[in-house]
Design a protein around this nucleic acid. Sequence first.
DNA 1: ACCTGAACACCGTTCAAGT
DNA 2: ACCTGAACACCGTTCAAGT
Lengths: 231, 231
Amino acid sequence: VKEKSLSLEAILAATTAYVDRHGLESLTMRALATEMGVYPTAIYWYVGSKSRLTSLAAGQLVGDLRLARAEDETWQDWLVSTAQAMRAAIHRHPNFATVIGSQISADISSSTPFVEALLGVLYSAGFDDDEVVDVYNVFVGAVFGWVSIELSNEPPSVGGDEHWQQNFKDHVDSLSAVKYPNITRTIPHLANRAFMVRWESGKTNPLESSFVALVSTIVAGLEARLAAHHS
Amino acid sequence: VKEKSLSLEAILAATTAYVDRHGLESLTMRALATEMGVYPTAIYWYVGSKSRLTSLAAGQLVGDLRLARAEDETWQDWLVSTAQAMRAAIHRHPNFATVIGSQISADISSSTPFVEALLGVLYSAGFDDDEVVDVYNVFVGAVFGWVSIELSNEPPSVGGDEHWQQNFKDHVDSLSAVKYPNITRTIPHLANRAFMVRWESGKTNPLESSFVALVSTIVAGLEARLAAHHS
DNA sequence: ACCTGAACACCGTTCAAGT
DNA sequence: ACCTGAACACCGTTCAAGT
């Protein structure tokens, strides 16, 4: 009687470790296989394809979310702490950020408790059946989408140009004050702290305060939406 | 005197057309080259690498944004119409959605007018230097991030399983009403209309009403933030 | 059921070499 | 400067075949 040398869990764990260490783009069926001391085709028996492998591994991250008990706080506080937990979960494995987007549509089995809890909180907040889905999508899409953009990679630098960060910085600094008054006015706060005007990924340069602003803005917006419905 | 047979613009246009037609994952330097009647290495001379090619092509989409004149409407209306324009631009080339995330950090040259206009509107709304960057990030990240998740691909189906959509649907329908009361209660509105509970991408199944809710929620949240500051 | 082993049909990219 | 042409070092995946 032979021992099984592989399992889906072991494969996904090895995948996560590999991607955390070397990045998603250098993940290779062959590299993963040799790291696990097995033939590439053995992995295929469990996951079927490379895209399914990354999808399953990314799905675990969402499934690993620890949720606060909804009864212990207001719906506003619950949304805030849950958003923080969602962001923290992705930040723990930032190289999966690009896959999170695709994963969001799938694998409800691991995310069912999350969906159930979120819907419960939204119902308790006062949203009715007609609007709860839109509000759910607002929250889930804004948080996951925002964080996946926060963690997106730097653009590929032109061949061999290792000073592109400095060049970018210089370019931003040199923008015409008469043509772009608002940008030049905001530069001290803007440089490397705003989407499209940063040269470091959120992996090394997190946008913490902006995320806090995102969540509080959405919560305040939802409060306003509830108030409008009541009047 | 020989004619140049290639140009960066022609290459990017061909790339966009190819990705629109065949999807991002089947874009190949070799396939693009043969389609342009040229050797793959000729393209390298212009773009340097494949990742830079897709990054440049995706950058054009953001650069192509048509912006309303800020003087013609309230800041609230401008944010709403601009958000719609941002979404429309990505929906025109949905197969680039995954690249948008990476692109957001880069190529300010093509997006400078957008950044300038957005900052101007936020200043005119009453935000000051200390908070305008956070608010900018809230808006840009929420809209681009949300739409890129809306358009994310379906999860890779298990090998040869062509009924996974039906299976998914059945799985959702069969969730225990006692364990998941909120999900089962919401199923009629939830099925295929909510993140993590849908089996079609936004490419074929857009989430229009949820996006409207997102934008109005953020605008309302920003109004509340302004009011809090004034008090 | 689970894995080995070999092979197929590709890839992105580099590097001369031509004009 | 711009492109050809060949070659390098890989890929994901399929398909027998073993146990």
